[in-house]
């Protein structure tokens, strides 16, 4: 099996993904951990491009890096003790061993059940258009499409409900001339 540039790029993207994930877990500094998370998400976007799914890569960057990383970083930055050099958790070795066990088991199951490596199927040129048609096709994905919108509605209502007590009330608001 000769080494093609595609292999090299795949190796690089996997390095970003896994290396970033390792950096998130092991880094003492929370801000650096958030930056490693962004690197990991970029790696996943790269993997999507290699799988000829550019739409998913763009969605990954738009939603994960653009929105979720921002949320996580904002939360991390208002945590009081970002630089507290806590000692590493005592169970680190045990956790590492368990993670390795899970990886070996999953790898074994995937390689034997799914026949190992298979050649990638051909991706049609108008895959995004077909996805759009499938979204509103009652025999295809119409119900999950609408349920997704209801799920998003529920998520937003839940978040507002939880944050409701922290929001300033009308009586405390000074009308119009005191803004942070």
């Amino acid at each position: 099996m000769s080494l093609t540039p595609l292999h090299a790029i795949f190796a690089l993207m996997s390095l970003f993904t896994v290396g970033g994930a390792v950096g998130v877990v092991l880094n003492r500094n929370l801000i650096y951990a958030a930056m490693y998370l962004v690197l990991s998400l970029f790696g996943i976007a790269g993997l999507f491009i290699l799988l000829e799914a550019p739409f998913l890569a763009a969605v990954q960057i738009l939603v994960y890096v653009g929105a979720i990383s921002v949320l996580i970083t904002i939360t991390v930055m208002v945590t009081r003790c970002v630089f507290c050099k806590e000692p590493p958790p005592r169970q680190l070795t045990l956790v590492a061993v368990m993670a390795a066990l899970v990886m070996v088991t999953l790898g074994f199951v995937i390689m034997t059940r799914f026949g190992g490596l298979t050649p990638a199927a051909d991706v049609p040129a108008d895959s995004i258009e077909q996805l759009g048609v499938a979204f509103v096709n009652p025999q295809a994905y119409l119900v999950p499409f609408e349920v997704a919108s209801i799920l998003l509605l529920g998520a937003l209502i839940g978040a507002i409900f939880i944050a409701r007590d922290d929001l300033p009330r009308d009586e405390e608001a000074v009308g119009g001339d005191d803004h942070a």
Partner: peptide, 12 residues
């Protein structure tokens, strides 16, 4: 996330 769902719909 909502707008991301709408993009394939708009293309089709």
């Amino acid at each position: 996330v909502e707008v991301v769902f709408l993009y394939p719909w708009a293309v089709a």
